[in-house]
Amino acid sequence: MLDEIRTITIKELKEEIKENLEYAHPEKNESVAAANAFGVHYGFKPYVNDIFFATEDEAVAYTFNTETIYQNIKELNDSAKVIESYDDTEDTLCYAIFNDIDKIALKQVFFSPKSQNEITIKFLFEEEQLCVSDESSLMFTCKLMDSGETVWNEEESIELMFEKEGILYPENIRKLVEGLWLSWRNYERTLEELEKDLNALVAWINAMTKTKPNFIE
């Protein structure tokens, strides 16, 4: 279970890392202790994982690029925002890309063997639900329960939408679409990644459908 704590920029996160740096006392660094013995004072130095750094910025850069907690956000620039959450199962903090878009509507074109033409199916991704609808009156919604289980409003769900058009689809089609929705909802996919991956899924389905032998109903 993830409990959202706050939204923060990468720059602000790095400032907090700097504030939390440990500093080496002379007795922890033999070279510093020896120098001080001869009257030369170098001051305390930041250190991480028993490594001494000349500057705070170097120590921050090392921490940000080596700590696994930041592995999903290391490629973001300093102005990017991230969601900081607490994972009570793992007892650790985690970070994900912040997405301030609460609704995404993506239209996809499918080849229909029934009409020998193209049809449009709309995927509406929202915080509370996923909605899939076609050009007729068919519409199916999927919601996330408090238990973490996903529930569709109809047992047959989107399979019926494809079957009535003669479109081939993978048997785990619902899980594939749910996975795209949940990963976007949980800030694991950006809008661009969501659209790219949905395009790839549709292209795969269309390729299967268009190469289906005529004797297969």
Rank of each mutant, 00 (worst) to 15 (best):
I10M: 05
N29M: 14
E56C: 03
K212Y: 06
N99A: 03
E171I: 08
E75G: 06
P46K: 12
D134Q: 01
A59V: 09
E30M: 11
I104G: 04
K196M: 12
N206G: 04
I121M: 06
E56M: 04
I97P: 00
S136A: 15
I119Q: 07
L21W: 06
F162N: 03
D88Q: 11
E165I: 05
Q108K: 05
V48L: 05
E159G: 02
A80R: 01
F140Y: 13
I69S: 11
A80S: 08
C94G: 04
W184C: 06
L176E: 15
A35R: 10
F53P: 01
I97W: 03
K18L: 12
E58G: 06
L198K: 03
S147A: 00
I10C: 00
S31T: 15
A54W: 09
F44R: 14
T55W: 01
A33P: 04
K74D: 00
Q129P: 02
D78E: 11
P113T: 08
F125I: 02
T9M: 03
L191Y: 06
W181G: 08
D57E: 15
A61Y: 02
F44S: 14
H41S: 14
R189F: 15
V151E: 09
E15I: 13
A35N: 07
L93A: 07
L180G: 06
V177T: 02
V151R: 12
S79D: 13
D134P: 01
Y70M: 14
V40H: 10
F111M: 10
S79L: 10
M208Q: 12
N99I: 13
I83M: 13
E188Q: 13
T68C: 12
S147M: 05
T120P: 02
R185M: 00
V40E: 10
T7S: 04
T66Y: 01
L198E: 06
F64V: 11
W152H: 13
A61D: 12
T66R: 03
F111L: 12
F140G: 07
F53L: 11
A61R: 01
I10P: 00
T120S: 03
K164R: 10
I5H: 14
M1T: 14
R189I: 10
L201N: 08
T190W: 03
K28V: 06
W181R: 08
N172A: 03
N36E: 08
D57C: 07
E171S: 05
N29D: 15
Y42Q: 10
C131R: 06
N117G: 14
E30K: 06
W204P: 00
V151G: 01
E27C: 11
L106T: 07
K175N: 14
G43H: 11
